[in-house]
Design a protein around this nucleic acid. Structure first.
Length: 223
DNA sequence: TTAGGGTTAATG
DNA sequence: CATTAACCCTAA
C-alpha cells in the first residue's frame, strides 16, 4: 500500500466545524482505516489538519470532524484524538450529517458526546439504514472501454487491482467496477434484445462479448 | 474484498 | 409504467 497524503479542506461553517478530505465516498471505508490515520497540524498557511495514512486510498473517503477548540499544537491534537480525556466537541453529530453531508448519515435525532475517533462513533453507522445513493453519474463509453481492457487483463474478480491500475483517479470504486461489469453482461451477453441507454461501438460490444467469454463471471475464487 | 441480492434514480 | 443503470448492503 503506498503512502498518500490527503489534504483536508476547511470549510467555514457554523460551529462545530467540519473538515473533510476532497475525496469521494465519504461515508464508506471510514472506520476501515482509522487505525492507519496519522494526523498532524499543518504548519503552513492556511493552518489546518493533514492526514497521512498508509492504508487508505483516495476513493475510500474520509470525513473529519474538527474540534471546536482549535488545537494549539500537535501534542494537543494527538491528546484530543487519542483520548477519552476530551469530550467530543460535537453537540449533535446528526445535525451535521444531515445539513452538511447531503443524504448520508443517520436520520434520527441523537446527541452524543464522543470523540469522532472513538470506534463507538462509527459502530453506530455500520448497520446504518439504506437511505439514498450518493451519486448517479453515468458511465461513458470511454470508461467502459477501459473497464473492458482491465477485465481482459486481470480477468474477473480482481476489482481492486483493476481499480488501482486502470481507474486510479476515477470516481469509480472497485465495487462500481464490479457492478458495471455485471450490468454490461446483462446488457450484451446472451441473445435477448435489450435496449441500452449508452451507445457503444459495435466493436466494443464485440470485445465485451469476447472478454466475457474468456473470463466468465463470477469468479468463484471467493465462494 | 467479492459476489450477489436489493434499492432507487433515470430513461424511453 | 417497465426497464436499465448506478449504487447500497453484507455474508463469507
Amino acid at each position: 500500500m503506498e503512502q498518500q497524503a490527503i489534504e483536508i479542506y476547511r470549510q467555514p461553517l457554523e460551529e462545530p466545524e467540519l473538515f473533510w478530505a476532497p475525496i469521494e465516498q465519504a461515508e464508506q471505508g471510514l472506520y476501515g482505516f482509522l487505525g492507519d490515520l496519522q494526523l498532524s497540524v499543518a504548519s503552513g498557511s492556511p493552518r489546518g489538519l493533514q492526514i497521512e495514512n498508509s492504508g487508505a486510498r483516495v476513493e475510500d473517503g474520509v470525513l473529519i470532524l474538527q474540534l471546536l477548540e482549535e488545537p494549539q499544537d500537535e501534542a494537543n491534537l494527538n491528546d484530543w484524538l487519542s483520548g477519552d480525556l476530551h469530550p467530543s466537541p460535537l453537540l449533535d453529530t446528526n445535525a451535521h450529517y444531515q445539513t452538511k453531508c447531503r443524504r448520508s448519515g443517520r436520520r434520527g435525532t441523537r446527541k452524543r458526546r464522543t470523540s469522532p475517533w472513538n470506534p463507538m462513533f462509527f459502530e453506530s453507522r455500520v448497520s446504518r439504514e439504506y437511505t439514498s445513493r450518493k451519486n448517479n453519474s453515468r458511465w461513458t463509453a470511454k470508461e467502459v472501454e477501459i473497464l473492458v481492457q482491465g477485465v481482459s487483463k486481470f480477468g474477473v474478480g480482481r476489482w481492486v487491482m483493476l481499480k488501482r491500475q486502470f481507474f486510479k483517479t476515477s470516481i469509480r470504486t472497485s465495487v462500481n467496477l464490479k457492478d458495471k461489469w455485471r450490468n454490461l453482461l446483462k446488457a450484451y451477453q446472451g441473445n435477448s434484445q435489450k435496449t441500452t441507454q449508452l451507445y457503444l461501438e459495435p466493436s466494443l460490444v464485440e470485445q465485451i462479448r469476447k472478454v466475457a467469454e474468456k473470463h466468465p463471471y463470477p469468479n468463484k475464487r471467493h465462494k
